[in-house]
Each structure stands twice: as C-alpha cells, then as structure tokens.
Computed example of a mutant assay.
Amino acid sequence: MGLFKKNPFGHNLFLKKWLIRILAVVSHQRYKRFNKLEIEGSEVIRSLPDVNVLFVSNHQTYFADVVAMFHVFNASLSGREDSIKNLGYIWQPKLNMYYIAAAETMKKSLLTKVLAYAGSISVERTWRSEGKEVNRQVKMSDISNIGKALNDGWVITFPQGTTTPWKPLRKGTAHIIKKYKPVVVPVVIDGFRRSFDKKGLRVKKKGILQSMVIKEPLEIDYDNESTESIIEKLEYAIEQHPSFLKVISKEELLAYEEENQQRRWKTS
C-alpha cells in the first residue's frame, strides 16, 4: 500500500492504519484485562463478502461498542475463534470498515476527531441537535456517504440513535437497506453500559462480563418488503423489540442486573 493512497472519503490509508493500530493498543486491555469480552459468531465474520455489509447493533456507549467491534472483526478475520487474544491481529487491520456517528459528537474534541478519521461516517441527526429536540430533513449527502462506504466495505450502524435501551429504531436504516441492498448482520452487545461511562472512554467498573453476539445475516426481500417490516425484523434481531420487555417482569430485570453484578470475571 502506497504512502499516499486514500479511501473514497479522502483519508490517507497509511495514516488511518497507524491510528487504528495505536487506538487498538490503547484500548485492548479494556476488553481483555480490566473486563472480559465474551464473543460468539467469529465464523460469521469470516464468511462475509469484502464490501456492502451493514452491521446493525444495539447501542450502550458512544465509543466503547464500536471500538470493541473493530477488535472483534479484525481478530476474527485473522483467524481468532471468538477471541481477541494476541493483539497481532491489528497489525494489518481491515481499512474499509466504517461506522455511522452523529456529526456533532465527532467534532467535540481532538480525540473524537481522531476516532472519526479511523472510520466515522458523520451524519446530522434529524431529531436531536446540541441536546435539543429538532425536526429536520435528512441530508442527501449523508445518505450518499453511507452508500459510498458500503460500496467500499463494511458499515456499522446503531439504528436506535441513542444509548438508551428499548427505543424505537430509526426508519432511515430500513431506507438505506432497501436502497443499497447490503448483507445485513445483526450484532447484540451487553455489559458495556455497566463497565464504561456513557461516552465509553472511561472504565467505570472492572471485572464486568461484556458480551458480543454476531448473528447470521438476515433474509430480506429488498424490493417487496416494507420499511416497517424491515424495522420490526431488525428490532427482533438486535433484541430491542418491545415484546422483549413484555415477557420480562420488573422483578426479573432486577434479578438479571444483580446476577450480572455477581458474574464478575477475575482480572489478571
């Protein structure tokens, strides 16, 4: 790879590779030592095409979720089986991997700008801006940038647009799926909200069991399936459909939280 080669967004790939390597070294212990990350589905990652793949996930922190996915996806591609042992997998990271994030979040500091260069597709939220509720039109340039990223490689999205659980999915995700017809891979994460602060930059608690389950790609009729049907399918796949709450009583939820507190992994 040449020193001056760039991706479709004008980012220098040599610089991007080193940024990903450095961020991976800095963050690895957050999932391997301070807390332990349990992974399922590495074989799914290895079976995917190199481009036009959309990962759809629930969301628990601003950055820890997606950083964990960069670790897991690169480790899986390099042959690790449900593990991120031996950080050598990051020496040749997948450079055509992107994630969708709010533009205002990615402009707030030098660190967020570095994280943006590592793979962010920054979009303007249509429902919220600077802590206030808004109602504005989707920017067509944002949609086309997502399409450009899918055409170049893999894209990670958190369609709830918030770290608050059980919120409805944004219909824009279904429109993107119908328009660009990507392979849609559901990802379910847990434990990140308990182990990190909301931004996902600071370890809040140690010894927490984190988990990431990568599911088989969804079967979607891109031409005939409605956006509502696709949204419902996604909600079930990432376990954020309202029906999940109906079958779990408040007592069970509290017991579940207590159990998670007890299921601490010993740090080494």
Rank of each mutant, 00 (worst) to 15 (best):
P168M: 03
P217R: 08
L150I: 05
H175F: 14
S195I: 10
G172V: 05
S268D: 13
N74H: 03
G153M: 07
A102P: 02
G172Q: 06
S243R: 09
Q29Y: 09
G191W: 08
K205Q: 15
A75T: 06
A68F: 08
F14E: 06
E239Y: 06
E216L: 14
F244Y: 14
K85V: 01
A149N: 02
P186A: 04
Q60N: 10
V134Q: 03
Y117P: 00
K16S: 00
A174I: 07
K266L: 10
S129V: 04
K199S: 09
V67M: 12
R194K: 11
K246D: 14
G119T: 03
V26P: 01
N145R: 11
R125H: 02
F9Y: 01
T162G: 00
T105P: 00
E225P: 03
E124Y: 09
F14D: 03
K108C: 05
W18G: 06
I100R: 02
K178V: 13
K199R: 06
V72A: 10
M212I: 15
K181M: 05
M212C: 10
G147Q: 13
Q137T: 10
K16V: 02
F73T: 09
S129C: 01
F63K: 00
P186I: 12
V247N: 11
F14T: 12
E38T: 06
R264L: 11
R128M: 14
L245P: 03
K206W: 08
N96W: 07
L111D: 00
K32S: 15
V66K: 07
L48K: 06
E216V: 08
K246Y: 09
A255R: 10
I156N: 05
I20L: 15
S122V: 00
G153L: 07
D197I: 04
A68T: 06
I20W: 07
I189W: 04
Q210W: 03
V203P: 05
S42H: 01
I84C: 10
W18C: 11
I20G: 04
I248G: 06
E252W: 10
A149Q: 05
S249N: 02
S229W: 05
V155P: 02
I189G: 11
D190A: 10
Q262D: 10
V44K: 10
A24N: 06
Y180T: 10
V134D: 03
V183A: 12
K108I: 11
R128Q: 12
E38G: 00
E259L: 08
N224I: 02
L77R: 13
K148M: 15
V187Q: 03
M106R: 05
V247R: 11
N12Y: 12
F70H: 13
S120V: 10
K205N: 15
V67I: 14
A237N: 06
